[in-house]
Amino acid sequence: MAETRVFHLGDILSITTERFVSPNGIGALYEILNWMTGDNLFTHQIPRASKECAPALLEQHPDLAQVTVPEDFGSEDAVLAWLNQQVRRFGETRPVAQLHPDDHTRIDPITEIRMIRPDMPIIGVEVPPSEQTGDGNG
């Protein structure tokens, strides 16, 4: 059986519905997508990774395919009220398995931003080894 990690329903629905409803903020979206892809994604890579992960999440949890998110909540409180209804219906958390390596395309973040915005100037910064944290974030 594949290794899994447990994630909040709102994190999963943020990917499967393409509407951000995670109660734990954007960091939770990075966590689930980094877990599923085995990558350390940059902000501009989130939409692509979400598209890669959504089918796997719905395969793991087919009952979530029926969830639709209202077009306009009007307020953050309305989002949380809607999410609480979904939690009562589907449960607060779900186990999530990683993607098969063939289901995620690893693209260097600088290469990918150049693919997305070839007109945008990019300034590289080299961090001396003595100042690197070892976590991939400089």
Rank of each mutant, 00 (worst) to 15 (best):
P118W: 01
D72S: 14
P109K: 11
S14R: 05
E52H: 02
V127S: 09
L83M: 11
F90H: 14
I12Q: 02
L9K: 04
D103W: 10
T133Y: 08
R94I: 04
T4A: 07
Q45H: 01
I110K: 10
W82N: 06
G124R: 14
D108T: 08
H8D: 13
T17S: 03
A81R: 12
G124I: 03
M120G: 00
C53K: 03
S22H: 04
E92I: 07
P101M: 09
A49N: 08
T17Q: 05
P128C: 12
V69L: 01
P62H: 06
F20S: 05
V21A: 05
Q98I: 08
T37Y: 02
R48L: 11
A49Y: 01
P62A: 13
A56D: 06
R106W: 09
A28N: 04
I12M: 00
F73Y: 06
V96Y: 04
F7R: 05
Q45G: 09
A56R: 13
I32C: 06
I107Q: 06
N40S: 14
F42E: 15
Q86W: 02
T37D: 05
I116Y: 03
R5W: 00
P121K: 08
H100C: 06
R19V: 12
L33W: 02
R89M: 11
N137I: 12
V125M: 13
S75N: 06
I123V: 12
I122V: 15
D77F: 01
H61R: 05
D119A: 12
